[in-house]
Every structure is written in structure tokens, then in C-alpha cells.
Computed example of a mutant assay.
Amino acid sequence: MEAPTFRELAVQALSSVERGYDLLAPKFDATPFRTPEPFLAATRDALREHGPFERGLDVCTGTGAGLGVLAEVTAEPPTGVDFSAGMLEQAGVAHPEADLVRADARALPFVAAYDLAVSFGALGHFLPEERLPLFAGIHRALRPGGIFALPAAQGPRPTRPAYWMLTGFDLAMRVRNAVWRPKFVMYYRTHPRPALLRDLTEVGFVAGTTPMPGVGELIVARKKG
């Protein structure tokens, strides 16, 4: 697959989130933004310690990287939800067995339908004040005792160049969103672990973490049963 050109990435970055991903979808899997395979494999292995699972939901599924993980740890075909029609089209090609639903993750149309929900690499598209409605919708979509698993990569230390690259990216996006409409919400450093665990607990989860050696940790939030 051919990677997107600089011009294509620039057009995407100046669009809304939905339109931007519609444009990027055909080449998304050739970009560094796709969740890496080692991260997906580590998540799959960690999830097996908490199963078995019957039905799985991939929130903000994109082109469906998380659907492959769910297919390996759940008994039934997975469901993917996203608000980009272009990304869902690509997910359907890669995972024809999956049930794909176009919806806003902040208003999920499911009630007690799943016993596992996951989300990969999408949290940066939500502002801190949107975490509670996002988590509340996932909580509502799960059956009693169900798990929301949120893989979290190891954050770089301030002594590493990657730390300042991510910080600089967030600053550039804030400037972009201050002077350009429509906004494109994507930030890397707005969801610290303590805030995530606090908000998961507030909506009714019992939250903790499972180590994923070499890549990070899996935040495991269980709905009280």
C-alpha cells in the first residue's frame, strides 16, 4: 500500500476529524498512525488472562486493527463502531465477518450487548471533558461483569526526543485549532493515567492495570455485576 503524500496529509489535517479520516482511510494502514502489530499482540495476550469473552466491541475501530484482536479472543464475530464512513469501508474489506456500525463514540447505541470493549489509539480525539460521556456510553454497552480494556503505551520520559516531539505536536494542534475551523481534535498528552482511572471509576467501573511488558500496560475496567 502506498503511503499518503505530504499534500494529502496536509489536506487531512486542515479538515474536520470525520472528513480528514474519510480522506485518509484508503492509505491509513500505510501510515505510522496505525496501531503497531506488537502492541496488538500484547493486548491480545493480556486479554486472554481476563476471558473468556462472548461478544466484543471495538470503539473507534478505524480500519479495524482492533477487530483482529477481538476475533481471536471472543466467541462471536466482533462489532466495530466509528463515525468515519471511509474508515468503516476499509474495515469492512479487512474484516468482512465483523458487524460495522457508524456512530459517534460519545453516544453509543448499545445497551448491555457486549462483555468486552476495546479501543486502540483513539483517546486523543476526545477532549478531557468528553471522557465521562465516552466512558459512560461504553459502560452502558457492556453487560454486568463486562470489561473495557484500554491499551496504553509507555510514555517517553522528558529526557527522550519523543517526549518533546509529542509535546510539540500538541502545541501545534492547539495553535491550529485556535486559528482554523473546523477543528481537528488530536492530542497526545491530555489523558494522564490518574485522570483516566478516576473517570472510569466515576462512571461505575472498577479499574486497574495489567502490565504488557515491552509496550506499556492494559487499563482494565470491569463493570460491576
Rank of each mutant, 00 (worst) to 15 (best):
A153D: 06
F169H: 07
A162C: 01
Q154M: 09
P151F: 09
G155E: 05
Y163K: 00
G168N: 07
P144C: 04
L166C: 02
L150W: 12
P151M: 08
R140K: 10
W164F: 13
R140T: 15
T167Y: 02
P161N: 10
P144T: 07
R140M: 15
M165I: 14
L166W: 01
P144Q: 05
P156F: 09
P158C: 10
A162D: 09
G145S: 13
L142C: 13
P156E: 05
Y163C: 00
L166N: 03
P158S: 10
Q154G: 05
L142K: 01
L166Y: 01
A149N: 10
F169C: 00
P144M: 03
G168Y: 06
P158D: 09
G146E: 09
T159N: 14
F148D: 01
Y163A: 01
M165N: 08
Q154W: 02
P161Y: 12
P158W: 05
L142S: 13
L150Q: 08
P151T: 11
R143E: 15
G155D: 05
R143C: 08
G146M: 11
P158I: 06
F169W: 11
A149V: 11
W164S: 05
G146F: 06
P158N: 08
A152Q: 03
R160F: 15
F148T: 14
A152V: 04
P158V: 06
F148W: 12
L142N: 03
W164L: 05
R143D: 03
L150C: 07
L150E: 01
I147E: 01
I147F: 06
A149P: 00
P161C: 13
G168I: 10
G145R: 11
T167D: 04
P151Y: 05
Y163I: 11
L166G: 05
T167L: 03
G146V: 10
M165Y: 10
A152G: 03
I147Q: 02
L166E: 08
A153C: 11
L166A: 07
A162Q: 05
L150N: 05
A153I: 11
A153T: 14
G168P: 07
A152K: 06
A141Y: 03
R143M: 13
L166M: 10
T167V: 06
P156I: 09
G146C: 11
R157F: 02
G155F: 02
L142T: 13
G145F: 14
R160T: 14
A153H: 07
T167E: 12
G155N: 02
Q154K: 02
P161E: 13
L150P: 01
T159H: 12
Y163H: 11
P161M: 12
T167I: 01
W164N: 08
R140Q: 15
A153K: 08
G146N: 10
F148R: 00
G168F: 04
L166V: 03
W164E: 07
F169M: 10
M165T: 11
F148G: 00
A153E: 13
R140W: 15
L150A: 09
P156A: 10
G168R: 03
A162M: 02
T167R: 14
G155P: 01
L166F: 07
P161Q: 12
A141P: 02
L166T: 05
P156G: 13
G155R: 03
P144R: 06
T159G: 15
Q154R: 08
M165P: 00
P144I: 09
G146W: 08
A162T: 04
